[in-house]
Design a protein around this nucleic acid. Structure first.
Lengths: 355, 355
DNA sequence: GAACACCATCGAAGCCCTTCGACACCGACG
DNA sequence: CGTCGGTGTCGAAGGGCTTCGATGGTGTTC
């Protein structure tokens, strides 16, 4: 099967190559009659425009790059939904996705953008001092980050509102009657990597607790049984009357529940557990966790839409509470009223509920 | 920063564009002197050849497609290492990777190949009657499958030798003294999808057991606690004296260990567990599982090497046993001698050991 | 019926690169 | 000194497509 060119289609349809091109590109000046004939010829000859030639002439490739630095610690379960979202939305726009996985340095991105292989780039896991952001800023490709770059970079982003999420988590638990609330945070490595989101959640939780006149105790948690037990025991030591925790650590949900069993803590009657994670992950453990859903697929889609948008504007996705079986009122309700009073004095807050 | 073309590089270096091109493409006829000067100009002007133009002229794009159908049931933890392998090897050859995720139908592949966006394709998760294999067979791009297509397709493949793995698993357990061995297989959906590998392992295990004069009992297992308990209870009902299982179900390793705890079975003293899975997954649970390592990253690399090879030849990767803490001799050694005798009568077999 | 406007289609230029054959130069050989 | 072979560089063609400005044909208006 020899490769068929636009010229062959044109002569088959009895028109000029330019007319075929106009049909392909949706130029409205072509009459319906001609358009149909050309379409028929395209189908008959099974023609596909040559991507290289098209890119050469038009300067567009309809390919976007997705840059995911892959570290050993990257959690596939967490990352993949973002990828799904990106790929799906890209496809909807007729774009293909080029996968870049170079950790850290921007050489790969540079190559792909400057050789005009892609029209745009979606960056994942941007760090505070990300080389890739700098590398891209000089280039003319569109770029969007999935995750908020810390510095005042001008690059548009989509991210989850981790700070609001932290505050809403506190409010939810306080509303249930909890006053002794702890935070089991991301592994310390995540904090060190300056990805930002771990801090933002921490801040939201701690600030809101302080506003409500409650104590804050948080602890990074490594994703191993030992790490989880350490964090848990540490928290109980600091807050012996602990009745609720916020967990921001997708890799340890399972382990945490096992650890609690091992320590003879019933969920939720001894300890309410509120997870900050994708809904899916919360559903896959037992008991099903109440969670603040991080809508990864939607965010992936959002990033692509931003790439497509005429005037891209960054935005944060609001947390949505998905009720599960891991939260409830604390067993001893001694100080409930007091806490609630404090809260009511404040402006009314609380997450949107999932429908 | 305006885009710099080959002509500008040429005039900067005081040579003709063709000379620059020859330097770029490693033509040996260019003198060292000239080559160096051109290289210097390229660096000075920060030049990158236009991928589209190059593709148009040369017919090559240095891009390979990676086609992973993504179903809801796709296990990211299992798939991603293959992707790593592919991406890494591609990069080593200076290729980029285009990610295709259309489940089932080959339209996406067809588009990408026929429009000459990619030079080759790596297909993952091929099914017996895979539309994509058919779609590709007419096209001129190179293609390789990661996983053995069942029918006598001429497409080269890399796959794990699941049958040999099944046999080696049996041999390993028998050598430890087990005679009552069961198989906890992939979820039934995997069998129905005709992916082949689930059957091949099943066959290896059952055939080898029969050869050794032992009974075979296997059971597909769904990746939920209930599914695991069902499978486990079913197996114990059929084989009350069960002392060892082979597990071929990456999604349920954790759940299985919990289920065993729930049933008061100690691993390995009550039940030896031998997993068929990637080494990583076996290491992440407690106790660490003895496993037949499926070297996903290497296989991903292998697929790309095949794409690159002058004369690609399909091959199967031999299973490697990675000892863990989940296997040991059975508690009651009543029938051990008998079983060993049967075995010794046969040709000596056994997996390669990991170093 | 002539002048005009408008619409659908066409021709040709050019995007940037690779590659083939031509060519200029040099040293060697008879 | 004329010829030959080899080496290193160049010129030009052309790959398939898009897009601008030109063109011809139709319908409308005075």
């Amino acid at each position: 099967m020899p490769d068929v060119t636009i010229a062959e289609v044109a002569s088959h349809a009895g028109v000029s190559p330019s007319t075929v091109s106009y049909v392909l590109n949706g130029n409205p000046k072509i009459s319906d009659h001609t358009r149909e004939r050309v379409r028929a010829s395209i189908k008959a000859l099974n023609y596909r425009p040559h991507a290289g030639a098209r890119a050469l002439r038009s300067g567009r490739t309809d390919v976007v790059a997705l840059a995911i630095p892959m570290y050993e610690w990257t959690n596939e379960r967490v990352v993949m939904p973002f990828v799904y979202g990106v790929v799906e939305a890209a496809r909807r726009h007729g774009w293909n996705v080029m996968l870049l996985t170079d950790a850290e340095h921007g050489a790969e991105i540079d190559q792909v953008v400057r050789s005009k292989m892609v029209d745009g780039v979606v960056l994942m896991e941007v760090r505070e001092d990300d080389e890739r952001v700098a590398a891209l800023s000089g280039l003319e490709a569109r770029a969007v980050t999935l995750g908020m770059p810390l510095q005042g970079s001008s690059m548009p982003y989509v991210d989850f509102d981790f700070e609001a999420c932290g505050r809403a988590s506190v409010d939810y638990l306080v509303e249930l009657g909890h006053t002794q609330i702890g935070l089991l945070a991301a592994p310390s490595g995540v904090f060190n990597r300056k990805l930002g989101y771990a801090q933002r959640l921490w801040q939201g939780v701690s600030e809101r607790l302080r506003e409500l006149g409650l104590d804050f105790h948080g602890c990074p948690m490594e994703p191993t049984m030992d790490g989880v037990l350490d964090a848990l025991d540490g928290l109980y030591k600091k807050v012996p009357g602990l009745t609720a925790v916020v967990v921001h650590n997708e890799g340890s949900l399972d382990t945490l529940l096992q650890a609690l069993k091992q320590r003879d803590k019933d969920v939720p009657s001894d300890l309410s557990v509120l997870a900050v994670c994708q809904r899916d992950l919360a559903l896959r453990v037992s008991p099903v966790l109440t969670c603040m859903d991080v809508p990864a697929v939607e965010m992936g889609r959002g990033a692509v839409e931003l790439l497509h948008a005429r005037e891209p504007t960054s935005y944060l996705v609001a947390p949505v509470l998905v009720p599960g079986a891991s939260t409830g009122p604390p067993r001893s309700r001694g100080r409930v009223r007091e806490a609630l009073t404090t809260r009511r004095a404040d402006k009314p807050v609380g997450p949107v509920r999932a429908t």
